[in-house]
Simulated assay, not measured.
Amino acid sequence: MKHRQSKGTAQIFAVMSLCGLPSAVLATNLVYTPVNPAFGGNPINGSVLLNNANAQNRHTDPSAKKGASGFKPPTALETFNQRLQSMILDRIATSVTGSIFDSNGKLKAGTVETDAFSVSIVDLGGGMLKITTMDKATGASSTFEIGTAP
């Protein structure tokens, strides 16, 4: 009987080892694939991740106006005033640019002043001009340099 048990044990071991071989043959390297599109994941996941984040977000902006999106459309009067202001600033810019260009269309050095703004153009030499605009009310200024064609 011992002979049969050892033969049965050997058969079971042989069957188990044969069952384990296919899994070893089919094994491959593990490759990490990110889920978030910001880190190389599939772009289709972006809306799902954003919707999940918004659904879990319990914080609200206290300064947000009432409404689902927090956006309050401007009134007709506000829209009119914005357009009027844009048109006036456009006219001022047009008149200022008319006085800073010569008859050939090239910028000329000098300063142009309005009630609210000052535009200064300085010739740096070598075909470079430095333009500084300043808000007289606040003192805020912006400066940039440009190259002029010879």
Rank of each mutant, 00 (worst) to 15 (best):
M1Q: 11
R4V: 06
S6N: 12
S6Q: 14
F13A: 15
A14E: 14
V15H: 12
L21G: 06
P22T: 06
S23W: 05
V25L: 15
V25W: 13
V25T: 14
V25N: 15
V31R: 10
V31F: 07
Y32T: 07
Y32I: 07
N36M: 06
P37E: 03
F39Q: 11
G40H: 01
N45Y: 03
N45I: 04
N45H: 10
V48E: 09
V48K: 14
L50W: 12
N52Q: 15
N52E: 15
N52M: 14
N54C: 02
T60Q: 11
A64V: 02
A68V: 07
A68Q: 09
S69D: 07
S69I: 00
F71N: 08
P74H: 04
L77V: 06
N81G: 01
Q82S: 12
Q82E: 13
R83F: 04
M87D: 08
M87N: 10
I88F: 07
I88D: 12
A93F: 01
A93P: 01
T94Q: 12
T94K: 14
S95W: 15
S95D: 15
V96Y: 01
T97E: 14
T97H: 11
G98V: 08
S99G: 09
S99I: 08
I100G: 05
F101C: 04
D102Q: 05
S103M: 12
K106W: 01
A109V: 02
A109F: 00
T111P: 04
T111A: 09
E113C: 03
T114P: 02
A116L: 10
S118H: 08
V122N: 00
G125H: 01
G127T: 02
M128P: 06
M128I: 10
L129R: 02
L129Y: 03
I131Y: 02
T133H: 11
A140V: 08
S142T: 14
I146D: 07
G147A: 15
T148A: 06
